[in-house]
Structures are given as C-alpha cells and as structure tokens.
C-alpha cells in the first residue's frame, strides 16, 4: 500500500459529478448484507487426485494408439486395425441382378438422385419419374442406355405427363460396367421389375453412337428399337447413311480400326 493512500482523499474529488460529499452515505446505497463467516483453503480430495491420474493414463494410451504415427499422410486413426479395403458391390449372392443393383446403388445416389430423387419419383413438372416409367421398363434397354450415355433434351411424355428439361450426358462420368449397373438398378428398384443389363450391351451402344455429341430427343428415341441388336448391330434405324459416314469420320483412327475389326468379326 503506497503512502499517499493513508492521507484522507477528498471524496468530492473522487467522484466526478461531486454530488455526494458523505462517503458513508454514498456507500450505504450498496450495503445490504447478512452475516455468515467462513474461510477456506481445503486440501485436494484424494478421489479427485485418483481421478486425475486415471485420466492422464487414459490420455497417454489414447494418444499412442490413435495418432497414426504422427504422419502427415495418415488420415485414419485406426491404422493398427485397418478397415477392410472398400469394395463396392463385392459379394451379395450369385444372382447378377442383385449384384448389379448393389453396385448401382451408390452410382444412382451420386448421379441420378439429385433430379430423379432417392425414391425414383422425380419432381412433378420438372424431372420425370423412373418408377413405373415406360421408358425405363421397355423390354430392351436400348433407349434407356442411350439416354444415360448422351442425355436427353426437349419434351418427353412419361406416364402421361409431359416434361421439358435437359438431362446430362454421363458417357464420361461412368464406364460401361457402371452404366450397366446403374441401369440395372433403375430397372429393378422403386417397384420396377426389368431384366439386367450387361456391360457388353452398353459397350456396343457406346461404340455405335460414339460420334454423338448432342443429347437425344424423345422423337429420335422413338425411332430406336427397344431391344435387339448385338455386336455392332445396334446402329439405330433413324440414322441416315450420311450421319454414319460423318460419325465414322469423327472417330479417332485407332477406334475406327477396332470398330472395323469388330464389324469384320
């Protein structure tokens, strides 16, 4: 305590408004009390100390076990007991449909569900339903594969309602196996019951329509046979000779060679 505080200070100077001159009266305003004396510097409780020791032990063991060796490229805390490598659609019965549906699920969720919704019912007026759709359930998958490969534009009638929107092309996003799986999934989910689609079918259509850039229109697809066609024979009837020629010109030389070999076979 410094010396000057022993000198009585002028209370009026202490208060900048200077309204209260009597310090006792001033502080009376803030004095409201009831007696209750106590004091304490209790020692630590033994149980608390034990508890802390247990926590510290846990901390040490957790830190050693789940730190991934303090490596910058180890993102899983479980590297001591690594999870089995994820395999999409691994086992699940011998039935090819079940297998394909399983493998198609994540693909559907990723690529299709944003528009056609998780339950396959689409959005009224915007995105057509897949559940019970005549386009999906056609006897053969020729049209639906084409739609998935190159997308679809312009008006289309599904289950009696007309939709006019633009669907993406997925030829670069998914390979033949994946498209086969996702189409099989669509044809066998939301109450749909259709045949499985093989990667070979997709590959054939992909090759046959390799030159296509624009999305299909419903009218064009009407001209495509719903089923049938095999290796190389899937060329749609709607194509004119000129279109085929142009498509062949657009093909890279190597692809053209393979195509010709395939046709020769």
């Amino acid at each position: 305590m410094s010396a000057d505080s022993n000198r009585p200070l002028d209370p009026a100077a202490a208060l900048d408004r200077g309204e209260a001159t009597d310090v006792v009266q001033m502080h009376a305003a803030v004095q409201r009390e009831r007696p209750e004396p106590m004091e304490g510097s209790e020692p630590l409780n033994l149980w608390l100390v034990v508890f802390i020791a247990v926590l510290l032990f846990w901390a040490g063991s957790y830190l050693t076990q789940y730190s991934g060796g303090f490596r910058a490229d180890e993102f899983s805390e479980n590297q001591i007991n690594p999870a089995p490598p994820p395999v999409v659609g691994g086992s699940g019965g011998d039935d090819p449909v079940t297998k394909a549906v399983k493998a198609g699920t994540p693909l559907y969720v990723t690529y299709c569900a944003p528009c056609h919704q998780g339950d396959g019912n689409g959005v009224a007026g915007q995105f057509p339903p897949l559940a019970g759709s005549e386009w999906v359930l056609a006897e053969g998958p020729n049209r639906i594969i084409r739609i998935v490969l190159h997308g679809l534009g312009g008006p289309i009638t599904v289950k009696g309602s007309t939709y006019n929107n633009q669907m993406n092309a997925f030829r670069d996003s998914m390979d033949d196996v994946q498209i086969a799986n996702v189409v099989t999934y669509i044809r066998n989910s939301f109450g749909n019951k259709g045949s499985a689609v093989s990667a070979a079918e997709v590959a054939a259509i992909r090759t046959a329509t390799a030159a296509r850039v624009d999305p299909w229109s419903a009218a064009e697809l009407e001209g495509v046979a719903v089923s049938g066609g095999g290796e190389g024979a899937a060329a749609p009837a709607a194509l004119t000779v000129d279109q085929i020629k142009e498509a062949l010109k657009a093909l890279p030389a190597e692809d053209l060679k393979t195509l010709l070999q395939d046709v020769a076979k």
Partner: peptide, 19 residues
C-alpha cells in the same frame, strides 16, 4: 489472497446484493 475480494464496505461474513 482468499480475502482479497473483501473490503471494508463489503466485509467477510456479510452477504451483499440482496435486493
């Protein structure tokens, strides 16, 4: 140290702020 919050106006053993 424990008595530091208390002062003459508001001493130990007196509850304050009972309004």
């Amino acid at each position: 140290a424990a008595l530091l919050p208390f002062d003459d106006e508001e001493p130990v053993g007196q509850a304050t702020d009972q309004i």
